Structure formats: C-alpha cells, structure tokens
Simulated assay, not measured.
Amino acid sequence: MNDLTGFQRDLLYVIAGADQPSGQEVKEEVEMYYSSEINHGRLYPNLDTLVNKELVEKGAIDRRTNYYAIAEDGEEAIKERREWVEQYVD
C-alpha cells in the first residue's frame, strides 16, 4: 500500500467499508470527506489503479454501472497499514 496515493488509500477504505458500492456511491462518500467535488477524471483512473493492483475487484451492476469490492489483497494491505500506523499512533 506504500505505493498508493493518499486519495487511492481513501478510495480503498471507502470500498472496504461498503457493500459493493457503485463508482457514484464511492464518489459521494469521498466528496463528503473531502468537502469538495471529485470529478470523474480523477475518480475512475484511481479506481482502475486499485483494480489493476488487484486490491479491488470490479464487476457490472448493469450496462452503465459498475460495482467495486475489496479484494483479499486489499484487505491484507489495509491490515498491514493499520499495524504500521498503530506503532506510531495510540
């Protein structure tokens, strides 16, 4: 996970905490955290990066809508990141 941007890590956390969210649902959740609009040109390439790194799985809900689900490697990456952070922060 050390090769992900902070934005990509935030996307990974949102996906891990949801039940197969659509890209739009991920976008809405991240926008609430960032308190600003996230455009498609920023969101979808970063989601694709997570898919390509096999941290997230992507599937079709219908012809226009995809869902994202945390992959086993993504869960492991989050666990390892938490352990690393916890050694510095109580």
Rank of each mutant, 00 (worst) to 15 (best):
Y88D: 15
D90W: 04
K79R: 14
M1P: 03
R42A: 05
D3E: 12
W84T: 13
V30C: 09
E80N: 08
G6T: 10
E25S: 06
N2D: 08
I78A: 00
I78Q: 09
G6D: 01
I70M: 01
E28A: 11
E75V: 07
M32W: 11
D73H: 11
D19A: 09
D48W: 14
V14M: 03
V51P: 10
A69D: 03
V30M: 08
D10T: 04
E76K: 15
Y34D: 06
L43E: 00
E57N: 08
R9E: 08
Y44H: 11
T49P: 07
K58V: 11
E75Q: 07
H40V: 06
E25W: 00
V56Q: 06
V30W: 07
I78T: 02
E76N: 14
V89Y: 06
Q8Y: 03
V51Q: 01
L50M: 02
R64I: 01
I15Y: 04
V51S: 12
G6I: 03
Y68S: 05
E75N: 06
Y44D: 02
G41M: 13
Y34E: 08
S35A: 15
D48A: 13
L12P: 00
E29G: 03
R82I: 06
Q87T: 14
D48E: 15
K79N: 11
S36L: 15
R42T: 11
E54W: 03
K27A: 09
H40R: 15
P21M: 05
Y68A: 05
S22G: 01
I15P: 00
E86Y: 13
N52R: 11
G17A: 10
Q87P: 07
V56Y: 04
D90P: 14
K79V: 14
F7I: 04
V51W: 03
Y67S: 01
G59E: 00
I15Q: 00
N39H: 11
D73T: 06
R42K: 15
L47E: 00
D10V: 12
A71E: 06
L55S: 02
G23D: 01
Y44A: 10
E37K: 14
L43A: 06
L50R: 02
G41W: 09
V85M: 04
V30L: 08
V51I: 12
S35Y: 15
A18L: 04
N66F: 07
D48I: 13
Y44I: 09
R81M: 13
V85I: 09
D48Q: 13
N2C: 07
R9A: 08
G23I: 00
E28N: 12
E72D: 12
T49W: 03
E80C: 05
S35V: 13
L11Q: 05
G41I: 05
D10P: 09
D90M: 03
